[in-house]
Design a protein around this nucleic acid. Structure first.
Lengths: 139, 139
DNA sequence: TACAGTCCTGACGTTCACGTAAGCGTAAGC
DNA sequence: GCTTACGCTTACGTGAACGTCAGGACTGTA
């Protein structure tokens, strides 16, 4: 799921498949406006052929990351910092340490969210149990 | 963490503690406006003494559920359906089955979010690994 | 060549979840 | 009895994440 190429990983010579904005929107159940918006805020940067957008595999992967971030309740700027981690250039030490910091921040947030989910699931179990109890009392 | 009383669970006779809006806001790090907003949309319904709001333990519990829902990225209406599950009256069979349906829906959403979190954490690990690798190469 | 289909760029509108005054009531303390 | 603190309602403002036109270009096809 990494976007960054570590070496010159010899891409197969065939022309890679691309997608139009309508195709991508259909496949991921988002609107054209949404995809354009993600480009506006720098989350996607499809190739242009003339004025038309041409989406590559790279854009699909980023889009999947974006949608996942949305499901997790992150804002688009937050998602940007996460998504951009994946294709950061090696860079210099200060940058790398900043990146490590960011990773810790996100990790902590995600851990909290996971606890929230566990708690909620447990309580839903309890609600369901009571509910079935009441139902059987009625039947 | 249940709000519904199953029987006449003999409440201790001492007067239960209550909280003012400012106290509650301070404790949960939200604004007065936020608490009032939650009341506007029916998520909280504090007692009124004159015009002033008086919050009870029940309200604290609901507020905790609300904040957890927010961390999980649910909208306030979505949170309402979840929170209201906790203190539904036993009700009739149709209602109970509807509730069971709702529980399934939420459970599925939460399961998806949990997968999202797992995936993201795994990938953060990978990013961190690469990052440390690059750092050691520099040091 | 006419027209349907797909794409584009503005740019204003909308919903959600509050923020932010403005203006007023009331109870405590000096 | 005046100030200060806290609380209230009403109501307009705001930022994020798009929705929704309007107007225009290009492209295949009947």
């Amino acid at each position: 799921m990494t976007l960054r190429k570590r070496k010159g990983a010899a891409v197969p010579h065939e022309t890679a498949r691309t997608w139009t904005i309508t195709e991508l929107a259909g496949e991921y159940a988002v609107t054209l406006r949404t995809l354009r918006h993600y480009e506006e805020v720098g989350l996607l940067s499809p190739e242009r052929r003339g004025t038309a957008r041409v989406f590559h595999q790279r854009d699909r992967i980023r889009l999947e990351l974006i949608l996942r971030g949305k499901r997790l309740g992150f804002t688009l700027p937050e998602i940007a910092t996460i998504v951009n981690m994946y294709d950061e250039q090696p860079g210099e030490a200060g940058q790398l340490e900043y990146l490590l910091d960011q990773i810790e921040v996100r990790r902590a947030e995600l851990a909290q969210r996971r606890r929230d989910i566990e708690d909620t699931l447990t309580e839903l179990d309890e609600v369901e149990r009571r509910c079935r109890e009441d139902l059987s009392r009625l039947g």
